[in-house]
Design a binder for these strands. Structure first.
Length: 506
RNA sequence: GCGGGCGUAGCUCAAUGGUAGAGCACCACCUUGCCAAGGUGGAUGUCGAGGGUUCGAAUCUCUUCGCCCGCUCCA
């Protein structure tokens, strides 16, 4: 039975329920009522995510000699965000429509010059009473209902701001509160911003800038030659307007990003290369082909600096209006051109050119960036692994068909029954697996069939059972998760058996 | 943030304003000799949180927090 056959059984509700029940993902601060958009990885979740990250690091850094690793601080110099455009670009004025309650971006609204008479329906409903009004100074109308009854434009900063230093900015604000009260609203806000900005720092909204600002350090310390890449995994933070779908969209999230520097002119070729490479990474780790696709961005969808961009998308079992699931982005592969290095060169005044020893040329490299979400990848592997299989009439088992490399627990050891020295023998084997660095679990509770099912539910690939023949030198049985078939192998060969099977990647 | 739906045991869900329940899961012992639902016993809830109405609130009401769906944004 393939995973695809079971897709109709999977809903996000089942995944969330399993995650909580078995300790993959919990809501943050749950005993206090939970915190919006924040989640904790439980004992099994942390193993799964760690395995995903490890596979990414191996494929990006350890198995290649043209990419080096990096781990930057989350808080960086505020000028980094000025240069990258995040400080301004993350600040979009939003407007609420008082008529239909829609919120929209002022710069995306239909332009209607002030003084023009417009008609729209009350409440934005087609049956609503007709209203005629004159457009005010704002010079645009609601994109949803056409109303000009709008709130002021308001700023929403999408970066997390905090302050560094022992003196809190509220002290200065308190000292100057009387002066501030005399100013008008805009002036007051500008003054306050100035006071806060003195000590303001930001949590990074992406890890990428760390690679760009360390470009010089790395070229000078690591003897790298074009084309080469810098890879980094780590937490990033964004005030998302609408988080949701478990760990898919959260304000705190972990990225796996790599900036690949190439000679201008060779960028298209490398873009295609990473396009393919990144798609295959997911497939190789067992994601169903039917639920994975590459989607090229339309021209108008591209960021202003990007020459090309494609998303690796997974068909998640999110419940939407159609009730059918939804294609959603796991990773973006973008050609960022020389935009970032040039911007940082301008703002820092440092020379970030690459000197080609062979040709004697100096130029700013182009950058191809595969930027993946570690939490999203983890969630995709979890959703894709989830199956409910009908073994026989009325007997359904829940099984997570993880690739063994990703499985949180690699092997479980059981005594067939709790007597005749079987628990002791099984414990010895379990300890031997642990000593070999294989994450193993021992279980003797209940019937053996139930123990197999328990392990199916958390995706353990192999269950090793000690039976009456084991002590007669006839070895143990190994039961394979997906096929449920068993084979008998010698006790001495168990560690090697598990190790061999884990290395098998196809 | 706005609109709609929802919050009861670990999970799925019951319970006319009148003593909080079931199934599964869990723990112990027995049984079990290779694929869940066998026997006996056991633990479990400030009914999401905080106010209000009432003799009495899981139930009515207000506020708040969280989740799901739509709008918007993105890895």
């Amino acid at each position: 039975m393939t995973k695809k056959d079971n897709s109709k059984f999977t809903t996000m509700k089942n995944i969330v329920s399993l995650c909580k029940r078995r300790g993959f993902i919990f809501q943050s601060s749950e005993i206090y009522g939970g915190l919006r958009s924040c989640y904790d990885y439980g004992p099994l979740g942390v193993e799964l995510k760690k395995n995903v990250k490890e596979e990414w690091w191996k494929s990006m850094v350890h198995r290649r000699d043209d990419i080096v690793g990096l781990d930057c601080s989350i808080i960086m110099h505020p000028k980094v965000w000025e240069a990258s455009g995040h400080l301004s670009g993350f600040t979009d004025p939003l407007v609420d429509c008082r008529n239909c309650k829609e919120r929209f971006r002022a710069d995306h609204a239909p332009v209607v010059s002030a003084g023009t008479e417009v008609e729209y329906k009350e409440g934005g409903k087609s049956k609503g009473k007709k209203i005629t009004a004159i457009v005010g100074e704002q010079g645009y109308v609601c994109p949803n209902c056409g109303s000009c009854d709008l709130s002021d434009e308001r700023l929403f900063n999408l970066m997390f701001r905090t302050n560094m230093g022992v003196v809190d900015p509220t002290q200065e604000i308190a000292n100057r509160i009387d002066d501030l009260a005399k100013l008008d609203k805009d002036e007051r806000r500008a003054e306050l911003s100035k006071m806060i900005a003195k000590s303001a720092v930001y949590l990074r909204p992406e890890t990428a800038q760390g690679m760009f600002v360390n470009f010089l350090n790395i070229t000078q310390s690591s003897r790298v030659k074009l084309p080469f890449g810098i890879a980094q995994m780590g937490k990033s933070y964004r005030n998302e307007v609408t988080p949701g779908n478990l760990t898919f969209r959260t304000c705190e999230f972990e990225q796996m990003e790599m900036e690949f520097f190439v000679k201008p002119g060779e960028d298209d070729e490398w873009y295609k290369y990473w396009h393919k490479e990144r798609y295959n990474w997911y497939l190789n780790l067992g994601i169903s082909k039917e639920r994975l696709r590459m989607r090229d961005h339309d021209e108008d969808e591209l960021a202003h600096y990007a020459k090309g961009c494609a998303d690796v998308e997974y068909f998640f079992p999110f419940e939407n209006a159609d009730g059918e699931g939804e294609w959603a982005e796991l990773e973006g592969v973008a050609n960022r051109t020389d935009y970032d290095l040039k911007k940082h060169s301008e703002h820092s005044g440092k020379n970030l050119l690459y000197f080609d020893q062979d040709t004697g040329e100096k130029f700013t490299p182009y950058v191809i960036e595969p930027a993946a979400g570690a939490d999203r990848a983890t969630l995709a592997f979890l959703c894709d692994a989830y199956c409910e299989e009908e073994i026989k009439e009325g007997d359904v088992r829940t099984v997570l068909k993880f690739d063994p490399r990703l499985a949180p627990i690699k092997a479980a050891v059981f005594p067939l029954v709790k007597k005749d020295g079987m628990p002791e023998k099984a414990t010895d084997i379990h300890k031997e697996l642990l000593a070999a660095g294989i994450n193993s679990q021992y279980d003797q509770a209940g019937a053996v069939g139930r123990r197999y099912r328990r392990m199916d539910e958390v995706g353990t690939p192999w269950c090793i059972t000690v039976d009456g023949d084991t002590n007669e030198g006839k070895g143990v049985t190994v039961r394979e998760r997906d096929s449920m078939e068993q084979e008998r192998i010698p006790v001495e060969g168990i560690v090697d058996y598990v190790k061999d099977r884990m290395l098998k990647t196809d």
